[in-house]
Design a protein around this nucleic acid. Sequence first.
DNA 1: CAGTATCCGGTGCGATACTG
DNA 2: CAGTATCGCACCGGATACTG
Lengths: 166, 166
Amino acid sequence: MTVTTRTAATLPLALEWSTDNCQVARTMAILGERATIEVLREVFNGVRRFDDMHRHSGVARQVLSNRLAMLVDEGILRRVPYRPEGARVRHEYRPTAKGLDLYPILTAMADWGARYVVGPEGAPVEMAHRGCGSRVHAVLECESGHRLDDPRDVAPVPGPGATRIS
Amino acid sequence: MTVTTRTAATLPLALEWSTDNCQVARTMAILGERATIEVLREVFNGVRRFDDMHRHSGVARQVLSNRLAMLVDEGILRRVPYRPEGARVRHEYRPTAKGLDLYPILTAMADWGARYVVGPEGAPVEMAHRGCGSRVHAVLECESGHRLDDPRDVAPVPGPGATRIS
DNA sequence: CAGTATCCGGTGCGATACTG
DNA sequence: CAGTATCGCACCGGATACTG
């Protein structure tokens, strides 16, 4: 036994389970590149056209092009054609439902970052409730309705897609 | 005006605000590398010794060494010496409070990944409430007590650390 | 305005070998 | 067992130039 302590004896040990195809790692594989998170921030902030994103974020055009294509390919953004009056057709990038569902992830990162990685001047960005204007945070809740304020009450367990290691 | 639509007129336009030092990007800079998330998963799963992590995760020794040092340096993990009886002193890596506070991020990613990036066999990993065993999810809640089930009710706004552009 | 083509540098990561 | 040293490749990302 190499693992020293486990709080609950019913929780299986990680060493007995494969972590291949872990959905957290897969999610990070999509979001983890630096340019990707910059592109997403622009889109969620309402900046949706190529050149505006380029100027505002500073991401190189080639990289921006690559990331936008990848995010469209993943179904996180979609290209929407529109026509400014008197001009030819243009495209803008908007989040899909799958893209909007990234908000809990971005909010959780904004919360953690605000607490641990920003200086005394405060966080550059916050999440707000459109309805009432209050700040929004990501909180943990279990399906029995308990709210988990202490992260030590959480533990990863193998899901239905886990595979046992010999 | 290059931005096409905004739901609430009170929300400032992103183009007027610098996104430098955004805490989401900074957080991603720490967590975004592939090996980092693998290391964190091992630690949160209770695998805390170097060689166990190496064998179980498949991360190369040099990379594992680098990531562990970085995470200790960031205050997310700490090295804890211990002595198995009859052996010389060893070290294990444990999450700090700052590290445990990553749970909302990891849970939000597990939720999103389970919905969008895993096959029909189901998610390999889930989060559980130690107290009652129920599955744990990350939900959005505002400081006025509203629960936000629709991510379209969220909008990023400049925080106290934001700086106006010219 | 909205990209693509091409080149190049930095580095994340894997593999192998070595140390206390 | 728990790392460090070294090598090499792949790839992300920046800069410049070109196209419809």
